[in-house]
Amino acid sequence: MQTMPQEKTDRTVIRLQDVRRIYKVGVERIHALDGIDLDIRKNEYVAVMGPSGSGKSTLMNILGCLDRCTSGTYELNGRNTTRLSSGGLAHVRNTQIGFVFQSFELLPRLNALKNVELSLIYAAGTTWLSRRTRARETLVRVGLTERVKHRPNQLSGGEKQRVAIARALSNNPSILLADEPTGNLDTKTSEGVMKLFDQLHREGQTIIIVTHEEHVARHAERILQMRDGQIISDERTGPNRVTPPSQEAHHE
């Protein structure tokens, strides 16, 4: 573990320094990420935009600890994740990261409540009762009080995505990563889901959304434009709250 200077640890959640990700396809080397430097502070609401092949998905995978960078360092909450084992990365994902996917990725045989419990199953020291309670609370937080015993195929698209967001939030993550969260939803439902993200942001959640839709990105307060594995623009479009309104403890 590497400790950061004090004044930075309480603000900076994500720090990327010269991060590169190179894929080898045959003899060709593809620079999916080509020297990314990025700081994201607590409670920031970031949208990552760019055409397909610009490296935004790779960035997402690296931020989500699903993938390791080829070179450079990635510090999450002041802790260098570059040299963690796959088990160590899994632990980081389990305790600090929440994923929301475009196609929801709910397990069809489990009901909404059990889907939300999924990440808690892999966390140490949770009991059946505490998982159940936490899952119910999180579902309430995303505005789903009914139909919690329904299976995914009995839920609407918006409800599915709410369940998926609840699952991402159930472990109280430091960062919420959403990959095209509205890609499979109609406009009206998309607005509802984006309002939920706004609400979570107001509650102090750090959010990173990958999208290519302008109206989705407008919800964010900081927009990163990517092209050819590099960040070509980084603009703040809204007020960046430095102090979160609720002091939620983020455990490691």
């Binding site: 699903l66 088990g87 994923f99 990725e105 699952r167 472990n171």
Partner: peptide, 16 residues
């Protein structure tokens, strides 16, 4: 495979 991927994404270790 997708289920495994998801379980891993939410923090299931290889051992799990």
């Amino acid at each position: 495979t997708r289920e495994i991927g998801l379980r891993k994404a939410v923090g299931a270790k290889p051992s799990a």
